[in-house]
Amino acid sequence: MLHVLAEIGYQSNWMDVLRAGFMRNAFIGGTLVAVASGLIGYFVIIRRDAFAAHALAHIGFPGATFAVLAGIPVTLGLAVFCVSGGLAIGALGKRVSNREVSTGTILAVATGLGVLFASLASANTSTITSVLFGNLLAISWGQLEVFATFTGGLAIVLLVIARPLLFASVDPDVAAAKGVAVRGLGIAFMLLLALAVTMAVQVVGTLLLFALVVTPAATALAITARPVFVVGLGTGIGLMAVWIGLILAVMFNLPPSFCIVTLVFCAWVGALVMTRTRRTQQSRPLSSHG
């Protein structure tokens, strides 16, 4: 144990490590993913699709291990599985929160498949660990090109559809009556979410996906309800968590995913405490209505 503790302690050469090529990749990759996650996160929450995001990450797991088995890039395997899963969930139409049991079942089956593929491929533990928990320090230049394309595409599409998507998300009945293509937008949204999940899994891993896609936006939403502010603040929280998390990871030789998740968690708890305090200070005769 002492040996382990010694490894995790303060690294006096951390400034040098930060200048290494793999760190540059980690910063660029983390930034791209934080931006994509921040853009999509608000809609994930307002559509109550957090469980879908979680499920997509798990559906990505067999994609990644299958990629190892088939000898194709992990990003490709992840993308194919996530996008197919997203399209399937989107085509079902109804919100995932209304279908928790079936989604949870598919999530479990996907994880089981992932384990099967991993054992067939006789993938080593570190491969599986990096899919489950992310490995920001191993992001390659090729992955960065994919990330940049995904984030750019996601941002452009979201800019165009943001308003009708918001309408269809909060108020589907009236939106449909107003001629908004509620179902089509739902499918488009799941596609975008699949792209964001494909990237975020590679940064924080399947199991910690919430930390980038859901929690920063939830934190922002606790502070402000204005859509543009929520997206901006959520992206900012994600970016700060990735940047500071990476520096702390190098400084103390900690896993980056751990640092990022912990920072996001602290921001979330801070926002909750802040809004609770604000709520008790204000006299609200009409609070707590569902």
């Binding site: 929450i45 559509r47 308003r163 009708p164 998300s169 939106a175 001629g179 859509p227």
Partner: peptide, 19 residues
């Protein structure tokens, strides 16, 4: 959802179908 301001919701009634 509980996360939208009344004013934003009313505004969507007018602008929500615009790309």
């Amino acid at each position: 959802g509980e996360s939208i301001r009344c004013r934003d919701l009313v505004t969507l009634g007018r602008t929500g179908a615009r790309w």
